[in-house]
Design a protein around this nucleic acid. Sequence first.
DNA 1: TCTTTATCTTGACAGTGTCAAATTATACGC
DNA 2: GCGTATAATTTGACACTGTCAAGATAAAGA
Lengths: 202, 202
Amino acid sequence: MPSSGTQTYHHGDLRSALLDAAANRIENQGIEGLSLRKLADDVGVSRSALYHHFRDKNALLNAVAANGFASWIAMTSESGGDESVPAPVRMKQFVYGYVHWAVEHPQLYDLMFGRPIWKNDLADDELKDVAYPAFQYMLSLITHWQQQGLLLADKPALRQTQVIWATLHGLAKLVTDGVYADSSHIDEMCDCAVNMLLPSVN
Amino acid sequence: MPSSGTQTYHHGDLRSALLDAAANRIENQGIEGLSLRKLADDVGVSRSALYHHFRDKNALLNAVAANGFASWIAMTSESGGDESVPAPVRMKQFVYGYVHWAVEHPQLYDLMFGRPIWKNDLADDELKDVAYPAFQYMLSLITHWQQQGLLLADKPALRQTQVIWATLHGLAKLVTDGVYADSSHIDEMCDCAVNMLLPSVN
DNA sequence: TCTTTATCTTGACAGTGTCAAATTATACGC
DNA sequence: GCGTATAATTTGACACTGTCAAGATAAAGA
């Protein structure tokens, strides 16, 4: 059976099969628990078949993270794009959406925004091409808020974006890392963050 | 030569020698680059000598993290304890101190507040005994600010502490993980954070 | 049909954490 | 001071990891 997918040799579509299996394993066992050999077993293929589709383990993780950014962007633009909803409500929705998405995909969030990839400059071009627009989207969103007078204009929008993002990222991290043990208070923490950072939403 | 240190058998004081070597390697290569066998080489001892002083690798990392918390607390109480300095200035100093300490000890900070230890409940009692007071210190500090009217009282001090800490943690993480590539703007980001979170400091 | 090319497997290597058994050095009772 | 118990350390081994080179297999193109 030839032309069914993009790659239709022995396996059919090994590349995306590996990506799916990797995403599954990461969601369940985390990045530390991901071994290429177990992965090959999951897909029913030999241990080094993978190297014909990814240069090495890092390249595979990059691809999984890239997929994560794609679905992150889908989530974000959905919750922030509806112009019929008043801006203050949208701001609150954005905060809730951000933190909840991280809490619902803790391992993936960790892979996307965590240090192993970014710290050591291990992100390849494909990943950067998806990740940078995500950063940029937040900046444009918050710049828009500032222009509408929802934020104080005494500091550059870039800095305010960095601080707001830091707060969201910090909340997400502290919750998903289990430092804030009682995650039942996520909504209250989000409320408080909105209250402190976004004076126009009271 | 008997009673010179706590452990004076073959090596003399292998336990703290291992801790020092581990802290050094973590500071330079990061936690991922730390191998027990290289560590044993550093100290000049066999690969499994370590197991008579630490139950396993995680126990050693716990001990390193515990030392980190001790020095973190020393730094923090130094910058926040001087009562002769006006409170708003101390608040600003606290924010600067927090972020800068993280930036100066990125790998150690990562180990102390990162997920491998807390997420999977890998922290032993010794570590918790040092870490919890650190959390508690921040809470008491910020509660104090609120009582002095430096913060709005419309939300519980616990929640405000969590949000402020999240912001500091997020800033530290985004900088040390290399997501905020240009770390020369750390001070501006701290300024902006103080500005947004602590209305009494303008 | 034959050649080329891409895909996959097998064997191997260096590296990892960890344990059991053997070895060595120190401490303690006499 | 000597002999024994105990703690510290080493050696050998195991299962696991990522990665590569060489060989085998299947598809694609002429």
